[in-house]
């Protein structure tokens, strides 16, 4: 049977790997290609590179990095961060990325998902969603009025039933979109996969957001990668068994050597989760 995937995420800045805790403080954790090699040896199932710089010069560095990774690493990898349009997607895929992850640009222009899926195939279009639970004290109507109207806001506005809101721009901008509806729209537009990050749990090491992951995964036919909050082995078990995630992404737990991927997988297998060892 299909195995559950463990995916280390490497935040990349100027060709180096960094990890933002709750999107703020950054620590340098090393060379991207070298780390990718280590993870390949540990039998990571895929890799995600998230570019957290977006200047023009930095984009060229990123393309170079993608090319190097693609020549040295024989496993699927996704590249995201700062993708604005079809040309960015084409450049990354041509450099050797297997998938691209789009976030803000997809919210601003949902047609980018359908156009990219039509040109390059759904299998390489990952829509990343940064989700934050809704503060009940703030009225939905007040929130909605603040937003500018876009196609996506027509497709999936927040309602009184909404539990999570979509954020963009690295978690800085609330969009007024409902996470579940947006995920469904992304699927309908041709996304091949959803990378779902809980902003509430990211960086806490308290575990994945099980309720969020379950709500999104059970609403979709495409795979969901859960992200944000991994700190213990048990968190992976929970997100697969209770959250119904298809894959789990984590960064610092692996980058700082707290657990190897192999250790997590051995543990998961001992608990009856189907993983590739």
């Amino acid at each position: 049977m299909l195995t559950k995937r463990i995916i280390p995420c490497l935040d990349v800045k100027d060709g180096r790997v960094v990890k933002g805790v709750r999107f703020l403080s950054l620590k340098d954790a090393g060379d991207a290609v070298e780390i990718a090699r280590v993870y390949e040896k540990q039998r990571a199932d895929e890799l995600v590179f998230l570019d957290i710089t977006a200047s023009f010069e930095a984009r060229k560095t990123l393309i170079e990095l993608v090319r190097k990774v693609a020549s040295n690493i024989f496993m699927p990898f996704t590249v995201g961060g700062g993708i604005r349009g079809i040309d960015d997607i084409r450049a990354l895929l041509n450099a050797g990325a297997d998938k691209v992850s789009i976030n803000t640009a997809a919210v601003n222009n949902p047609r980018l998902i359908s156009e990219a899926a039509r040109r390059f195939g759904s299998q390489c279009i990952v829509v990343a969603i940064d989700a934050k639970s809704i503060d009940r004290r703030q009225k939905t109507e007040d929130r909605k009025q603040k937003k500018t109207k876009t196609l996506s806001s027509d497709l999936c506005p927040l309602t009184s039933e909404s539990r999570w809101e979509v954020y963009t721009h690295g978690g800085r901008t609330a969009t007024g979109l409902d996470v579940i509806k947006w995920a469904k729209s992304a699927q309908k537009l041709g996304a091949g996969e959803i990378l779902l990050t809980s902003m509430d749990f990211d960086g806490t090491k308290d575990g994945y957001d099980i309720a969020l992951t379950h709500a999104v995964s059970s609403s979709l036919e495409i795979p969901v990668i859960a992200s944000g909050g991994a700190g213990e082995k048990k968190h992976f078990l929970d997100v697969f068994q209770r959250g119904k995630a298809d894959a789990a992404l984590a960064a610092s737990i692996f980058h700082y050597g707290e657990y190897t991927i192999q250790e997590i997988k051995q543990y998961l297998r001992s608990k009856g989760v189907n993983v590739r060892i």
Partner: peptide, 13 residues
């Protein structure tokens, strides 16, 4: 079958 997540994506035996 539409009962399964599609695409079939990931590592399988």
């Amino acid at each position: 079958s539409s009962k399964l997540k599609c695409p079939h994506m990931g590592w399988n035996g």
